[in-house]
Every structure is written in C-alpha cells, then in structure tokens.
Simulated scan of single mutants.
Amino acid sequence: MGETPLEQRCWQALRDVADPEFPVSVVDMGLIYGIRESDGTVKVTMTYTAVSCACMEWIEQDIRNRLLREPGVKEVQIEVVWDPPWTVERLSEEGRQKLKRWGVSSR
C-alpha cells in the first residue's frame, strides 16, 4: 500500500528536523523507519544512533512540533524501536555528504 499525501508531506516536513549534534535531518540520518496516518493521528516509528542518546526528548519534541504544523495532523505518536538497529547504511547520500563536510566519516 502506498503512502497517503499527508504521510508524504510528513516525510518532507521531517527534513526540517535536524539532529542536534550535526546539521543533518532525522530523515537523512535514517532515524525515521516509518510514518503512518489515520484520522489525523500520525504514528512515527523511529530509532536513535545509540541507546544512550542524550537528545532523545529534544528530537521527539522537535518531531511533534514540526508535524503538528502540517494541515490535517491532529496528534503525533512516536514509537522508538531498537530492532533493526541503526547503522551508517541508513544514512542518505545527502546525510553522508553533510557529515563528510563536518569532518565525520560515514565510511
């Protein structure tokens, strides 16, 4: 089943939410595993680069705040999963390039 127009807009909106440590969006970092919407409730499935990430609450609040600005979004639910674990292979090409410019090698 394909994504709804609202789900597509949410993916795009999350490109505005950057990882606090690097200027890379949570989408380009590969932290967002899925977005589903039903009756205005957007469910985001995501992970973090490490279980001990100190920025979890900030990132989740930024995600909520950004998605709630999208027309049609009434509620945001976030599910954090650890399986599959995040790896550098989840980085988008844009994310890899930005990290490289910051002197962080993704390989």
Rank of each mutant, 00 (worst) to 15 (best):
Q77P: 08
A50T: 09
V44K: 08
N65Y: 00
L31M: 15
E70V: 15
Y48A: 06
S105F: 00
G40A: 05
S52V: 04
R64C: 15
Y33C: 08
I78F: 07
R36I: 03
G103V: 08
G40V: 01
R64W: 00
P71C: 05
T4L: 15
E60P: 08
G103W: 02
P23N: 05
G103F: 06
R36A: 15
R9P: 05
G72K: 05
P85H: 00
V104W: 07
E37H: 10
G34K: 01
S92Y: 01
L14D: 01
V51I: 12
E89M: 07
D28T: 03
E75A: 13
M29I: 02
W58M: 13
Y33G: 05
V73L: 13
I32Q: 07
N65S: 15
L6T: 08
S38G: 14
E37M: 10
M56D: 01
V27G: 14
I32T: 05
W86G: 05
R36M: 12
E57Y: 11
C55N: 03
G95C: 09
Y48F: 15
S25L: 07
V51N: 12
T4E: 10
Y33R: 13
A13L: 03
R101N: 05
R69A: 14
T41F: 10
T4K: 10
E93C: 11
R36D: 08
I35G: 11
V81M: 14
K98E: 01
I35H: 12
E75C: 14
E37N: 10
S38Q: 11
E37R: 04
G72W: 02
W58C: 09
L99C: 08
M29R: 05
D28Y: 12
I78H: 07
Q12T: 09
V80D: 00
I78P: 12
R66D: 11
P84N: 01
L91Q: 06
Y48I: 01
D39T: 07
S25R: 03
E57M: 13
A54L: 09
S106C: 04
G34L: 05
W102D: 02
V27N: 14
E93S: 15
A18D: 02
A18H: 01
S25Y: 04
Q97K: 14
R96M: 03
W11M: 12
L6P: 10
Y33T: 02
Q97Y: 06
M56E: 07
V26Q: 07
I35W: 08
P71A: 09
E3C: 11
E75G: 09
E60H: 08
E21Y: 04
V44S: 09
L31D: 04
I78Q: 03
S92Q: 02
K43N: 08
W86F: 07
E57D: 13
P84Y: 02
L14T: 02
E21F: 03
L67G: 06
G95M: 04
E3Q: 15
T41M: 14
S38Y: 00
R15H: 08
W58G: 11
V88R: 09
K43R: 09
D19A: 06
E7H: 00
C10Y: 06
D28K: 03
R64A: 15
W86S: 06
W86C: 04
E60R: 14
Q12A: 14
S92A: 03
R90E: 00
T45Q: 06
E37P: 11
E75T: 13
S92N: 01
I35M: 10
E37K: 11
Y33Q: 06
G34C: 05
E21S: 11
S38R: 10
E93G: 14
M29K: 10
D19T: 03
G72L: 05
D19K: 09
E94Q: 15
V27C: 15
